[in-house]
């Protein structure tokens, strides 16, 4: 464990807590994409298949349970909670996220480190996570007013993977033959997808204005 990875995990934890807090306290999911939340639930389900069979550490298991629990409960809130679901903007959240799942699955079947069920599912979760934010970014472009919590959620979600990239650089230089191209490339693509959001987020922060993305 290095500082970059710990910072990345904490940033990721904060992003899901910010979102859960928003939905649970103000009972609203305005501006939040259900599609992205469903993709993330799928990412964690595919990645943490061995949560009970491959014990690594208490920290690792607890964090996996938190990520699984939070992502599925956010999906539950947005789909079934009678108050929260009313604030879900399904007419705007129209990204066909099923078109993301299949290509990622096919790619995982073609490009992976080992052709086993667990490894292919793990690789699938990497590719899917890289594109899971797209429905949310599209929704932000459409809904003019981006409330602070949603903006912070997306920012933290992007920052966590950027910190993971620093973690991979650190591990590359400190651990012998630590080479994982698949993870590095998908992590880089994921972070680059946030590039323009980061730019506008920083601009709004610098000029102390409300965050708005150009149409």
């Amino acid at each position: 464990m290095n500082i970059f990875r710990l910072a990345g995990d904490m940033t990721h934890l904060f992003s899901v807590l910010v979102l859960l807090l928003k939905i649970h306290t103000i009972k609203s999911c305005a501006g939040v994409s259900l599609k992205t939340q469903e993709l993330y639930a799928l990412v964690f389900a595919a990645r943490y298949l061995d949560i009970f069979t491959n014990y690594i550490s208490l920290y690792n298991t607890v964090m996996k349970l938190i990520f699984l629990g939070s992502s599925f409960s956010i999906v539950w809130y947005m789909r079934y909670h009678k108050i929260v679901r009313r604030s879900y903007d399904k007419d705007q959240d129209t990204f066909r996220h099923y078109f993301l799942i299949l290509p990622c699955l096919l790619l995982a079947l073609l490009i992976n480190e080992k052709f086993t069920f667990k490894e292919v599912m793990w690789t699938f979760s990497l590719y899917l996570e890289a594109v899971a934010i797209l429905p949310q970014l599209v929704l932000l472009q459409r809904t003019r007013n981006i409330d602070n919590l949603t903006g912070q959620y997306v920012f933290l979600l992007g920052a966590y993977r950027a910190l993971y990239i620093l973690n991979w650089v650190y591990r590359y230089f400190t651990e012998p033959h630590f080479v994982h191209w698949i993870t590095w490339v998908s992590g880089l693509v994921q972070t680059l997808l946030y590039a323009d959001f980061f730019y506008y987020y920083f601009q709004s922060w610098k000029n102390n204005q409300k965050l708005h993305l150009p149409a």
């Binding site: 990721h12 690594i56 651990e175 630590f178």
Partner: peptide, 10 residues
């Protein structure tokens, strides 16, 4: 085992 090295990440 290199494979497990990466799997300790979240």
């Amino acid at each position: 085992k290199e494979e497990s090295v990466l799997k300790d990440e979240l």
